[in-house]
Design a protein around this nucleic acid. Structure first.
Length: 800
DNA sequence: CGAGAATAGTTTTTT
DNA sequence: ACTATTCTCG
């Protein structure tokens, strides 16, 4: 490729955007409009044609995965090194900057990054120490108030000024204590990464000047999901060159709950009146049918700028709307359809690969039913999110040991593992230790040191509040950690992990633990595999870098483009991805829109954008699935079709749910739940706030018309909504009896090594009778995790 | 001090 | 239904 035609692959609009390199630029990019392609080519153009050195360009993305992809695409376009380019998420960019400048701003260079659960620990402790009752004020609520304050550029000082309510007053108090504890622990939270970077730039003009000079070009992707602090950082960093290019789509703004502020897009035009605005409206991804549906769906939002997307792609096939009886049947129908879509040979519906297919849902809990059916049908799947790897207990435990080795001030980590395995350090001792640390204003680790005198003898009883036994236990622990710290030289990060596992007794603790012992060890091995990326670094640096990646890397970042598995993913995580075939399950009131959003029109508009994001992921085929009854918390209740379904024109749809409302005018809901009682909604106005039980339903055959619901309302004297179970289409599946397993003679026994065609080698964890089959739970290697398989479906062979 | 039992809160979405 | 936390007893 020559330099002159480097932009030849772009359409005129994209080309215009790539060449607009002087001054501020706002690109409003519709879904599938080749946004990533544009950004990549724009950078390539800057480097190769304009001659901007790579290190003077920053490109910030929403996920590490997007950053990685950009890097790899740039690697193909730009021959010379792009390693100097700042490509990453806002959070990783800030973490890097803060470490570089840590000396100047008085931050421990090895600061730990606390994730959500870590942060909650500190919040709880702060509440305890400020006498705030966690029963009256939920730690979660306090946490989110603090996060919100930080995300809108308000530190604890700023927050303390406001006392709009008693709650805020309380939060202010906890906030102050929280900041103190975090500082003392040498730790920062996610919001701090951004806020402290901003503060650094404001308070240290000489530092700011260096970065302002450096970044000649600054680009931000997914700008609609940035928060106030992120935007402020970007403005500050581009003061010198003013070449700030932001790319976003207001219709895909779905992170307001994380304090993303859609107003950034509007502010941008105020802050940069000379900004060029380029809309990208040609869609290269989806069929006209899918695009029409998406357009009708999003047009129902009132807070929105009109826009018309178009495509040269053909109409394609209609959108399929289906209903299952419950989430199990919904999953079954989905899996059956996937079977048809992936079939080869005559009569095949397209011969799709499993990797072409994604199932999307609103909440992680929905993945469960889908996983079960995948296992039943033997369909390999890739689950994104859910129980995150780095949040698993044993992984967090080892992480805590490592963090403590890196930074002994880290109280959260210390508390997590000081008695794991048990070392005779119980609650009383820990309470006393916390009190001692607080009174003497030091970390708990240092507090232990303080009761030891210099010659390693125990301090006199007067200053030592602990019993001799507790004192012994505490000092042994302290010596063990110090021993690890003393022997770091010459070790690699992997060596260090091995040392920790052995010298702390954690390895033995895992081996001896009856519960999930092997799975946990597998997880630790996986953890070590992840650490291998840092094996070449000096152990201190490797440790810091590895700990940082543990905090900032998400599940989607590790997602592989595998062709042999379907993808299960939340709608939020699906942003930015595309698949030939997309199923969205749970198209129901209460789920999408989510019940927590339903009484707020603004929140419902965000839910609609979320649905829009899901719909526009599909290239060729889109399935919208829902259930007749859905289970929550073990109970089950009737569900209503999502209002979003009613926004999609009938002519775009092929229905397999013949007995359900087709549109606003012909709608004839047969049942409804508590959710349907919303007042003032035209679309739901005809629904009643209760269910009638006289209806029967057999499989997919016609359902009778609804009877008058009035009588039931009257029969419900207390006005309390009572759900009468409808008859199931088929008898409930018997639950596999746990007891029965003990008397059975399974073909596999726990500990057996087995091999599976797709998942590879694994170890049998259990084998239990399930109906007339056996359910085998197997821990697979190579990141496939633990799977439950039915013996008759899964081709498992015993190894050795 | 620690293990097992009782109990409460939980399901929005995540860097 | 599930789990994380608190309670109770040895």
């Amino acid at each position: 490729m020559t330099q002159t035609d480097i932009l030849a692959q772009l359409n005129p609009r994209q080309r215009e955007a790539a060449e607009a390199i002087d001054g501020p630029l706002l690109i409003v990019a519709g879904p599938g409009s080749g946004k990533t392609r544009l950004i990549t080519y724009r950078i390539a153009y800057l480097v190769r044609v304009v001659g901007v050195p790579a290190r003077r360009i920053a490109a910030l993305t929403f996920t590490n995965k997007a950053a990685r992809e950009m890097r790899s695409r740039l690697g193909e376009l730009v021959s010379h090194s792009i390693n100097d380019m700042s490509v990453g998420t806002f959070h990783s960019f800030c973490a890097m900057t803060l470490r570089w400048e840590s000396d100047a701003i008085g931050l421990d260079r090895n600061f730990a990054i606390y994730d959500d659960p870590d942060q909650l620990d500190v919040i709880k402790r702060s509440m305890r120490e400020t006498d705030v009752d966690p029963k009256r004020f939920s730690p979660r609520a306090v946490q989110s108030a603090i996060s919100k304050a930080k995300s809108s550029l308000l530190g604890s000082e700023g927050f303390g000024m406001r006392t709009a309510s008693y709650f805020e007053e309380v939060v202010g108090r906890v906030f102050e204590r929280y900041e103190l504890l975090m500082a003392q622990s040498g730790a920062v939270d996610f919001d701090d990464l951004l806020l402290k970077t901003h503060q650094m730039l404001e308070q240290h003009p000489e530092i700011a000047a260096r970065y302002q000079d450096r970044y000649v070009h600054f680009m931000i992707d997914e700008f609609q999901d940035t928060n106030v602090v992120q935007y402020a950082i970007a403005r500050k960093l581009t003061e010198a060159h003013r070449n700030l290019c932001v790319v976003g789509d207001p219709d895909q703004s779905i992170y307001s709950w994380r304090n993303a502020d859609i107003r950034n897009i509007l502010s941008f035009q105020d802050d940069f009146p000379d900004a060029k605005l380029i809309p990208l409206e040609q869609n290269y991804r989806s069929t006209q049918t899918i695009l029409d549906a998406a357009d009708k769906l999003i047009s129902a939002n009132s807070q929105r700028i009109e826009r018309e997307l178009f495509t040269d792609n053909g109409d394609g096939v209609p959108i399929v709307v289906s209903e299952g009886y419950d989430e199990a049947e919904e999953a079954q129908m989905t899996l059956k359809e996937i079977g048809a879509l992936t079939k080869n040979g005559p009569g095949a519906q397209g011969g799709y690969k499993l990797g072409d297919i994604a199932i999307m849902y609103r909440v992680n809990a929905q993945s469960r039913a889908l996983e079960e059916e995948c296992l039943r049908y033997g369909v390999p799947y890739q689950l994104i999110g859910g129980q995150k790897f780095y949040q698993r207990q044993e992984v967090k435990d080892v992480t805590a040991y490592l963090r403590l080795v890196a930074n002994t001030n880290d109280d959260v980590s210390l508390n997590r593992i000081i008695n794991l395995p048990t070392r005779g350090i119980g609650r009383r001792t820990l309470d006393e230790l916390a009190r001692l640390a607080r009174d003497s204003n030091m970390s708990q680790f240092d507090a232990i040191s303080s009761i030891m005198s210099t010659d390693d003898q125990l301090a006199p009883a007067a200053t030592n509040p602990f019993t001799p036994r507790a004192t012994r236990a505490l000092t042994d622990f302290q010596k063990m950690i110090n021993g690890l710290r003393a022997d770091l030289d010459g070790l690699s990060i992997i060596d260090l992990i091995d040392q920790v596992l052995e010298r702390t007794g954690y390895q033995k603790y895992l081996t001896d633990s009856a519960e999930r012992g092997e799975e946990r060890i597998e997880n630790i091995n996986e953890f070590k595999t992840a650490a291998r990326d840092y094996i070449h670094m000096p152990v201190q640096d490797g440790l810091t870098a590895f700990m940082e990646s543990v905090s900032l890397v998400s599940d989607i970042d590790k997602m592989e483009d595998r062709t042999e598995a379907i993808t299960l993913i939340t709608l939020h995580q699906a942003k930015g991805l595309e698949y030939p075939v997309v199923f969205i399950v749970g198209m129901e009131e209460g789920l999408l829109p989510h019940s927590r959003s339903m009484d707020d029109p603004t929140a419902v508009e965000e839910e609609r954008r979320l649905a829009y994001v899901g719909v526009t992921r599909a290239k060729e085929r889109l399935y919208l699935m829902r259930t007749f009854r859905r289970g929550f918390w073990g109970a089950s209740g009737p569900s209503l079709p999502s209002r979003f379904l009613l926004d999609i024109p009938e002519e775009l749809i092929e229905r397999t749910d013949k007995n359900t409302p087709k549109s606003q005018t012909t709608e004839r809901p047969r049942q409804s739940g508590p959710i349907g009682t919303r007042k003032g909604s035209e679309r739901t106005g005809r629904r009643q706030g209760f269910e009638f039980s006289s209806n029967t339903r057999a499989g997919s055959t016609a359902r009778p018309e609804m009877p008058k619901p009035k009588s039931l309302l009257n029969s419900n004297s207390k006005g309390k909504i009572k759900l009468t179970p409808s008859r199931r289409p088929s008898p409930p599946r018997p639950r596999p009896g746990r007891r029965a397993a003990r008397n059975a003679t399974p073909l596999f026994k726990t500990g057996d090594k087995v091999a599976h065609d797709t998942f590879g080698d694994g170890i049998v964890m259990s084998c239990e009778p399930s109906q007339d089959d056996f359910q085998v739970t197997v821990a697979f290697k190579d990141g496939h995790g633990v799977k439950r398989l039915l013996m008759s479906f899964a081709k498992l062979t015993k190894v050795e």
